[in-house]
Design a protein around this nucleic acid. Structure first.
Lengths: 98, 98
DNA sequence: GACACGTGTAACGTTACGGGTTACAATATT
DNA sequence: AATATTGTAACCCGTAACGTTACACGTGTC
């Protein structure tokens, strides 16, 4: 994967909120989170927390996993930006000798 | 899923470290983390961080995703323990009217 | 022009958590 | 007996999500 994965917040905004004509204020109320929390999420300032994923899943009747997977790909992509280089490969597991 | 998913640390201990006869001390050295960090991970006191996942993946030549997925299932399972109840379902998306 | 809304965000505080270091007691291993 | 390994407590950091409050900036309405 070479291109930065889409932020789940962007997807939520484009594919859920906009089609339903939901304002950040209203959606936040319905999700049961603060307007700030949702705003930061849809503006990609915060990542998707497991709790937020559950809320979205309950509100939109979609699978939690689908949302979590989006975040995981992003998290992994970001983490790979700072790959550790001081990792020593484990000795290869071999067929038992003797 | 009704049973608590296996902690990735337990898998790492059983399926990787033990077969290779690696001590926590040695494995920690090779992974480039502190003994404490690895100990807590394999003893299920800490969850798998993305960075640790990358280290394990590099050291064992396995996919980062497989480890991350284990953690995600656990994380989700735990999160569902405290499901929020103040979520208001979004109005159903309908075929455009008018 | 005045006012209501929705919005992004700064400031501030709280809570949670991964990770490092150091140190100690308990338990192998040799 | 001497050495190695281990789990973990204590303590310090940095990061991050979330809440509340408050401000400035549109935009639309009367």
């Amino acid at each position: 994967m070479t291109r930065r994965p889409t932020h789940p917040g962007a997807v939520f905004l484009e594919d859920v909120m906009k089609p339903l004509n939901l304002s950040v204020t209203d959606a936040a109320r319905m999700l049961g989170v603060s307007r700030k929390a949702l705003s930061e999420f849809v503006n990609e300032k915060a990542s998707l927390s497991p709790e937020m994923a559950i809320r979205i899943s309950k509100a939109t009747n979609t699978s939690v996993e689908s949302w979590m997977n989006m975040q995981q790909k992003l998290t992994l992509w970001n983490a790979r930006m700072n790959e550790p280089d001081n990792v020593i490969p484990f000795p290869l597991a071999r067929a038992k000798e003797g």
